[in-house]
Every structure is written in C-alpha cells, then in structure tokens.
C-alpha cells in the first residue's frame, strides 16, 4: 500500500491539542455560568465562588492529565 500522506514530528502534540478542546469548552461553560448567575443574582456570587473553583479545578485537571500523558507516553 502506498503512503499518501504522512505526519512527522511528535503525534503526542496533536493528541494533546485535540484533548484540550473538551476542557477548553468546559472551562468556558463554568465561567460563563458563574458570570451569568452572579449577574442575575449578585448576592449569590460569594456562595457560588466555592463551586466555581471546584468546577474549574475538576475540568482543568482533565486537561492536565492530557498534558502529563503527552509528555510521558512514548510512541
């Protein structure tokens, strides 16, 4: 079978780029919801901040799993 196209360099980088899409959207959703909720109900901003940080940390952890694995896994 003849090779039509080939990717050089580290494929891990592409993999991490793809893996970062999901957490990127997730972080955006978390912060969008926080801004929206505290705009609608400003008194709840302090209360929601805890859950903002927890949600952001949980989503960001997934992106960092990808980062570590991109460095660790050898093809």
């Amino acid at each position: 079978m003849s090779v039509l196209a080939e990717i050089g360099g580290s494929v891990n980088t592409i993999g991490y780029g793809l893996a970062a899409i999901g957490p990127g959207i997730g972080v955006a959703l978390v912060f969008a919801s926080y801004i929206q909720s505290s705009a609608r109900q400003p008194e709840s901003a302090g209360f929601n901040r805890t859950w903002l940080i927890l949600g952001f940390a949980l989503v960001e952890a997934l992106a960092l799993f990808g980062l570590v694995l991109a460095f660790a896994v050898q093809a």
Partner: peptide, 8 residues
C-alpha cells in the same frame, strides 16, 4: 499551579 504540581 496546585493541579500541575499535584498531577505532574
């Protein structure tokens, strides 16, 4: 920073 330190 904490997440990078922890996971890394």
């Amino acid at each position: 920073g904490y997440l990078i330190a922890g996971i890394g």
